[in-house]
Design a protein around this nucleic acid. Structure first.
Length: 434
RNA sequence: CGGGGUGUAGCUCAGUAUGGUUAGAGUACUUGGUUUGGGACCAAGGGGCCGAAGGUUCGAGUCCUUUCACCCCGACCA
């Protein structure tokens, strides 16, 4: 993409109400803009990042044998009456009426709809197990949306549901999904922990959360420094007051707190802040029983499906990447999430030599299907560098005043280091890095 | 849902207490010129029914009423 043709409205100043780095930089970098309370538009850069994360989630799930579907976003209220959630979820469900005065709900989650889809279509134990998922818009009418993409009302979430003929098989799938989620978070380049969770309102027994470690995280977790044990404090302490007290502490304050207990492996435990970006639950038969969704077992007896449910906050992950990877200048995207992996910056577009090389390199990389941005704008060096740092391209090739000596520079966004490279070697160097 | 706050140029904000020329600044934008390695400089210019509706007044960004939106603290929340 030529920067001169791209719609990337960057700004010097952040919205006054943005407190989180991800919120500030995603708005300043022209990734998103606010439409209303908890509602965001994704502009071109934001859309690219969102789609990249979605693609990685889909790829790993498909490899693990999950089936992608798409459920209608607008759902009849009757669906929610059957499970009782039209009462229990209360005002979080946004209700609307059509021209016939029929009531509908904008889906906040989809246990009911997915069970209805499977019910009476899968009728034998021979057709189990089955894992269905979708990556689709959700709407939860939060009392107080905040923190940009981190806690919006409308958001993109992957929600998956599995169906089994036995608890053992459901637990097997639960473990498979835990490993699949680990692959996804690792591919995204995130530092994360799988922690034991409180099972909350959705119900069920086993429950694990995937936390992206970040100082600004809303959740407090305990992790071990020598094994991979981790737990949300909500799952450890029964005492509400204790949980509230810990949650109110900042990251720095938490680091000061000693934990006297040792991990069962003997390792040292400490408090961290995390962003909940994934959650997996063992549901059991809660929804299949409520909705009378049964299959026939080996003896021809009707039994409710054993179920598990799996969620990943895709749009929340966009913000999480930045919460974990940023500095005072802006975003630092990981290789897997960067909207463009390399940015070619011509320092002075009036210099013919510089433009010729820039153009040549740009077209060559484009021909190789490499995600490349070509900053061909008529702006000065400093302006374009600040812009590149704010957006957070992992690498920027600076074609500037050193060109007369046959040298260009490779700028690494994460380290902010510039390396001089002969013009003849830059192409191969880029291929090597990405 | 309880408490508090804010709506003025694309963006960040002054101005409102005490009503009174043509409503301001910075930034962004347009044009011309200079400049070209860290968000340049000079000059000229465009852009606002001051959130909306109603009211008081000779006169309202400013006062009154209603309403909408957004934000903050709390409660709630995969």
């Amino acid at each position: 993409m030529r920067r001169s043709r791209a719609f990337i409205p960057t700004t010097k100043e952040a919205p006054s109400d943005a407190t989180l780095p991800s919120h500030q930089f995603l708005v300043r970098g022209g990734f998103i803009n606010q439409q209303g309370a908890g509602l965001y538009n994704f502009m071109p850069l934001g859309k690219i990042v969102l789609e990249k994360i979605r693609a990685i989630v889909k790829d790993e799930l498909d490899k693990a044998g999950c089936n992608e579907v798409q459920l209608s976003f607008v759902t009849p209220i009757g669906l929610w009456d059957k499970s009782g959630r039209s009462e229990t979820m209360g005002k979080e469900m946004l209700r609307i009426s059509d021209r016939h005065d029929n009531d509908f709900v904008l889906s906040p989650t989809n246990e009911e709809a997915m069970v209805e889809m499977v019910k009476n279509r899968v009728t034998s134990y021979k057709d189990l197990p089955l894992n269905l998922y979708q990556i689709n818009t959700k709407f939860r009418d939060e009392a107080r949306p905040r923190y940009g993409l981190m806690r919006g009302r409308e958001f993109l979430m992957k929600d998956g549901y599995s169906f089994h003929s036995s608890t053992e098989d459901m637990v097997r799938e639960f473990n498979l999904m835990e490993n699949t989620y680990k692959k996804i978070f690792t591919r995204l380049g995130l530092d994360f922990r799988v922690v034991e969770a409180d099972s909350g309102a959705i119900g069920g027994e086993g429950s694990k959360e995937f936390h992206v470690l970040a100082d600004s995280g809303e959740d407090t977790i305990v992790i071990c420094d020598s094994c991979d044990y981790g737990a949300n404090i909500e799952a450890i302490y029964d005492d509400e007051a204790k949980i509230d007290e810990l949650n109110e502490k900042s990251y720095e304050e938490l680091q000061e707190l000693p934990i006297t207990e040792k991990c069962s492996c003997g390792g040292k435990l400490s408090f961290k802040k995390g962003i909940e970006a994934g959650h997996i639950f063992q549901l059991g038969t809660k929804y299949s029983e409520a909705l009378e969704a049964n299959f026939n077992d080996e003896n021809g007896r009707a039994k409710p499906f054993e179920m598990a449910t799996f969620g990943i906050g895709v749009s929340r992950l966009v913000a999480s990447v930045i919460e974990q990877n940023h500095d005072e200048s802006g975003c630092i995207w990981t290789k897997a999430t960067a909207p463009y992996i390399v940015n070619i910056m011509v320092s002075n577009i009036k210099d013919e030599m510089q433009m010729t090389l820039g153009e040549e390199l740009y077209l060559k990389l484009l021909g190789d299907d490499i995600e490349v941005m070509f900053d061909d704008r008529k702006d000065r060096f400093g302006f374009k560098m600040k812009d590149a740092e704010l957006i957070g391209f992992p690498y920027t090739v600076i074609i500037g005043k050193e060109l007369e000596n046959g040298i260009v520079q490779l700028y690494d966004r994460a380290t902010k280091e510039k390396t001089s490279i002969n013009t003849g070697d830059i192409y191969n160097k880029i291929l090597e890095l990405i």
